[in-house]
Nucleic acid binder design. Structure first.
Lengths: 114, 114
DNA sequence: CTGCCTTTTCTACAATGTAGAACGATGAAG
DNA sequence: CTTCATCGTTCTACATTGTAGAAAAGGCAG
């Protein structure tokens, strides 16, 4: 019987990066990832933050990378994509959040001040 | 003119804890929070993890706490609740995730193996 | 060659995540 | 009254993630 591989989760920034990879697909290389995140979330992100996160995700086998020579005259890019393991971790993380949010009145604003 | 308070975000576990507080409301004290999280997410959580997180959230004014003498014969509990600031941070974090997920085919399973 | 982009790598430190033992209160059992 | 079993909280310590920015390295224009 297989050892029921205990569930793995991702940190919040890791999740954002993962999602960016999914959106960008074949264009998912560092600088572009950063651009996608800042554009969509308004959150300022240093380029170093993106790369270290990608490196670490790769070290954990959550993403894989390939360097691609860009025939179009620009320099080669290192493209990242989620592995199935990374995909599972992303799903698990999202599910955890979802199950905790379930039934809660979250989007609304009314909130007792403190 | 007010200084447009730069957006603050929460880590993933912080979000889970925050959500637990919202669900538990007046019963949101350490042990119960832990219980709620493990029950809902299947994620194993050490009690120390919950308390340190709560402490830190309080230090950042994301939650406030009050110790309540429980007339019903059980011992006093320290109850936590999100401040409006914490509430904003939670919303901001969720929105960031949501905007990155938008339009993506996420729940489904089909995924190229790697 | 020099300067100027673009993309990546390195180095460092701060914040968050995680565990588990220690400690204190309270009721049950004997 | 002791002792034990909980429950609930505090402490201590270390691991993993988050975040920044400067330093390479590749390629093009002039």
């Amino acid at each position: 019987m297989k050892a029921a591989a205990k569930r793995e989760f991702l940190g919040d920034f890791e999740q954002l990066v993962m999602l960016a990879l999914l959106r960008l697909d074949a264009n998912a290389y560092g600088m572009r990832v950063r651009q996608e995140i800042t554009a969509r979330t308004k959150r300022e992100v240093a380029i170093g933050a993106v790369y270290t996160t990608l490196e670490r995700l790769e070290a954990k086998s959550m993403v894989s990378s390939t360097t691609i020579e860009a025939g179009d005259g620009t320099r080669a890019k290192r493209v990242f994509r989620p592995t199935s393991r990374g995909r599972r971790a992303l799903d698990a993380s999202r599910e955890a959040l979802a199950s905790m949010s379930d039934g809660l009145n979250l989007t609304g604003a009314a909130w007792k001040t403190n």
